[in-house]
Write a protein that binds this DNA or RNA. Structure first.
Lengths: 169, 169
DNA sequence: ACAAACTACTTCGCATACGAATTATTCACA
DNA sequence: TGTGAATAATTCGTATGCGAAGTAGTTTGT
C-alpha cells in the first residue's frame, strides 16, 4: 500500500524531531482523523458553493434542522449547540432572516423568547446541500467494504465513548 | 456496548428525516470523525490555555516547526500551508513577533522575501504545548489495544488515500 | 538596457464573531 | 405583592481574517 500524507508526516517528524517523542501510531491516527475532517469540510464547502450558502449559514440551518424539534428552536439553544456566542447567533439569524431562510417570531407565553423557524425556502436549500454532501461522503466510503466500514465504526466508537466519558465525568 | 453520540444522532435522524436518506454507517462514521476532531481540538485548546498561547498563535508556530526546514519559512509558504490569506499571515506574524516567539529577517538575495524564524522562546513554548497535547492523545488511544490501533490506522488510511486521490486527480 | 509581467509581502476597508453591557421579561420568596 | 436574582435576546466596542489594492523588488523578452 502506498504512503499517505500521515505516513509522510510521521516519517518527517521522526527525522527532525526525535527529541519530542510521540507514539507513531497515535500520531498517524490523529493526523488521519484531521485529514478526513478537512476532506469532509472541503466537500461540504463545494456543495454549499453550488447551492449558494455560506458555511455559517449552512451550519446554522443544519443545526436548526437536526434538532429534536426539526426546523424550530430558540436563538440561545442554537448558539450553545453551535458553540457560538449569543451575539454571533443574533448576527447569523439576521442574515438568514434577510435571505428569507428562517423566520423570527416573538414568543407568546414568555415574551423574552424568540422562536426561530426554517421557512420552506430554508428547508429546500438545506436539503439540496445535504444531498450533495451525502454524495461526497458515500463516494469516500466506497474505499471500504461494508464489513470494513462496520469494523471502522466499531473502533471509532470505542474512541468516541472514551472521549465522551472524559468530557462528562 | 452503550450508545455514543453518533448512535443517538443516527437514530434521531432516521426518526425525523426518513425522506433524506443516508447510509446509517456512513453517516455514523462521518459524525464520529467530526466528534473526535472536536475532542482533539478541545484538548489542544486546554493545553494552549495552560502554556498561554492562542490557537492562531499555536497553529502558526506549529506549522513553522513541522516543515521540512523546521523553524524557518517564508510568510507566503506558511499562509498557504495554513490555508489563511497573506494578509492574515502578516497579522499573525505581527502578534508572534511582538511576543518574541518568531523573528522576521529581510531576505538578502531576494529582498522581496522575509524569513521567519522561531526564536528560542517560541520553540520552548511550542514544545510545552506539544507535550500536553500528546498526553491527551495518548490518553484517548488507551481506549484501543495496540492491535486495534493498527487496524484502525489501516482502515483510516484506505480512506485518506481515497481522499487524496480525489483531491489530486 | 528597459518596459512589462510577475512575485512577495503589507496596508486598507469590510465582514464576522466575541465578550461585556443593555434592555426586557420572568421567577423566587420574604 | 414587591423586590432582587435570573434569563433571553440584542446592541456595542474590539479583534481577527478576508479580498483587493498598494508597494517594493525580480525576472523575462526583445
Amino acid at each position: 500500500m502506498p504512503q499517505d500524507f500521515a505516513d509522510l508526516h510521521v516519517e518527517r517528524w521522526r527525522d527532525h524531531w526525535i527529541e519530542v517523542d510521540f507514539d507513531d501510531d497515535v500520531e498517524a491516527m490523529t493526523v488521519r482523523i484531521g485529514a478526513l475532517h478537512r476532506y469532509f469540510k472541503a466537500s461540504t464547502q463545494r456543495a454549499l458553493a453550488e447551492v449558494g450558502l455560506l458555511e455559517s449559514e449552512y451550519e446554522t440551518l443544519h443545526h436548526l434542522m437536526i434538532r429534536d424539534t426539526p426546523g424550530k428552536a430558540s436563538p440561545g439553544d442554537l448558539a450553545s449547540d453551535l458553540g457560538v456566542s449569543g451575539a454571533g447567533m443574533t448576527g447569523r439569524l439576521d442574515v438568514l432572516e434577510k435571505r428569507g431562510l428562517v423566520k423570527r417570531t416573538p414568543g407568546t407565553d414568555d415574551r423574552r423568547r424568540v422562536d426561530i423557524e426554517a421557512t420552506r425556502a430554508g428547508v429546500a436549500i438545506w436539503r439540496k446541500a445535504m444531498a450533495l454532501r451525502g454524495d461526497a461522503e458515500d463516494d469516500l466510503a466506497t474505499a471500504l467494504s461494508s464489513a470494513e466500514l462496520k469494523t471502522l465504526n466499531k473502533l471509532l466508537k470505542k474512541l468516541t465513548l472514551h472521549a465522551e466519558s472524559r468530557l462528562d465525568g
